[in-house]
Design a protein around this nucleic acid. Structure first.
Lengths: 316, 316
DNA sequence: CTGGAGCCATAGACAAAAACTGTGGCGAAA
DNA sequence: TTTCGCCACAGTTTTTGTCTATGGCTCCAG
């Protein structure tokens, strides 16, 4: 039964598990030693679970005790976070979530994020900040952003990175292109014409990755046009500056089409990123949400016959 | 503070949030209406958090209340699971975890799983059961297996599937093969020689996927040899029956090497699978573990410069 | 418009639980 | 052997929780 269990008791257990010493644990939680001792003892009796082995040379956590202590620690932490966010929501003091995003990520991801955030924290604002990934990361460091949705790879280990989407890269071309009637393209017939890229400065590691991917199929990159936004890319394609590789899910301007490349499974990966300190009250919640519901809700929408991994939009 | 919060109170809050009626909620948790009412009221006072709006036409959860009620529900469920597993561990009544696996998954995954399981549940046994994926799934249905580590794709929606690994498929050949001195292969020069496959019957959906992947590069499959195990495959390669596609991380017999195929990013995906009913006490824990620690611990081991998505061993 | 039903809050009595102080036992270190 | 640190137990006080009973409020049916 869940009775006979108090959050206070969880604190006792946590302290005792940390110190392995009832006396010092009692000091740590500001009660008499006998209180802590008897509480834990009584609990052990009622649930018939020995948490601590009382040995001559001190205490020792039992296996069961380790499990319970872990639970205690997690639950206390989660409660603190829950209380913080609940209070903030009630007082309408949830600061706007400063969400950075690269203009190259899929807009649908942002939309979905917004919907879910509104459901969790009704009335709480999101401040969108569009910028290239490098700037987003800098602003995360400077704490002028709380989190960001960015294309992978994200270099630093300083950030918490959670991949949330993966979708194929396809060639974007005019619908009157000579190759437009082909269902799939061969890399060798289009490689030279792919000349439009995002500005390498915007996300150096992503560009490096592209260069590597090209090299793997034995083709050098012909970078003729550097664009800063997705619409710039599409404009360049329309103006016949060349072809471009774009995320398959990007909304297309009229007059443009996309074609996949046979045998090539390059993907655009997207991640939710935040600095490890987690300044914003909602971040712990969002993080747990991405772990549970997000992938679950996508899984149910996804056609049941799983095909290639490159075609899975989202990975749990 | 985490004081003033009881698990009993969580049950009250949960019941009240479900019924939106203090009287019926009180019945549900077997106390007088006044008790439940005053407990919730006192709690709201002490944490200065209004959980329920008392309106003329009944109760309504506030935004903060919804957050707290969700927390209550989760925490109660997790405690039940924690208590169950802790009791089982203490009594040495954790039934052996009947873990199925395909002989085609990477052995290191099994090893890691075993280590982590031993850490969590010292002394608790794992019964390994090796068999082809289809049989594993059938045994999950029949409840003669608790869970399994299988190659994706897993067709049914009846199972809980959590992807835990992804690694490139490479061509396995003799070290004295004519192509052995090449760093990378072209798909067209090896396609005809790749004749060794796992028996399609063992995992029809995985074979279907392979066929599709071959078709995408415009090459039909020449299935000349069907193997049932990884070592059979390697034996066939050594005996010059042909080449085979294998998981890059497969331990190789001496005399064999692997080469990647340029421009091809086929991957072997592995998932942790269990039936949705979760018979084994440890399953909730394992599941949470995969969500948190597993990917985290891999992330730290992974070289910091993230390369291609196909080369990520594990996805969070 | 009036009486009853449903719902929630409050009050006071009582019971249970948790806290505190003080003490004793036991092993390890001095 | 003494002393110290640590834990368990006993007795007492304080706090907390539950119960019954009651009152106020709204809604609805007669």
């Amino acid at each position: 039964m869940s009775d006979s269990l108090t959050f206070r008791l969880l604190r006792y257990i946590k302290a005792a598990a940390e110190t392995l010493n009832f006396t010092r644990a009692a000091e740590q939680v500001f009660v008499a030693q006998s209180s802590l001792s008897s509480q834990i003892g009584k609990f052990e009796d009622t649930v018939e679970l020995l948490l601590f082995a009382r040995l001559q040379n001190g205490l020792k956590l039992t296996s069961a005790g380790r499990i319970v202590a872990t639970f205690a620690e997690n639950t206390l932490k989660e409660w603190d976070q829950t209380l913080a966010i609940a209070l903030a929501v009630q007082r309408n003091e949830v600061p706007p979530l400063r969400l950075g995003f690269s203009s190259f990520i899929n807009a649908k991801l942002l939309e979905r994020f917004r919907e879910n955030y509104e459901g969790m924290f009704p009335g709480c604002a999101i401040q969108l900040w569009s910028g290239d990934p490098l700037l987003c990361l800098q602003r995360l460091d400077a704490r002028t952003l709380d989190c960001a949705i960015l294309p992978l790879p994200v270099d630093a280990t300083l950030y918490n990175v959670q991949q949330i989407a993966q979708s194929p890269l396809v060639v974007c071309m005019r619908s009157d292109d000579v190759l437009a009637d082909r269902a799939q393209l061969d890399i060798h017939e289009v490689a030279e014409r792919i000349t439009i890229f995002r500005d390498p400065e915007l996300h150096p590691s992503a560009h490096t990755r592209l260069v590597e991917m090209f090299r793997e199929v034995g083709i050098p990159i012909h970078l003729a046009c550097a664009a800063r936004t997705s619409s710039e890319i599409q404009w360049m394609v329309k103006e016949r500056y060349g072809l471009a590789l774009i995320d398959q899910l990007t909304p297309l301007d009229p007059g443009l089409i996309t074609r996949s490349i046979a045998g090539i499974n390059w993907t655009a990966d997207t991640a939710f990123v935040h600095a490890s300190h987690m300044d914003h009250v909602a971040l712990p919640f969002i993080e747990r949400f991405f772990q549970q519901n997000w992938s679950a809700s996508r899984r149910s929408k996804r056609p049941s016959k799983t095909r290639h991994p490159e075609q899975l939009e989202l990975l749990g």
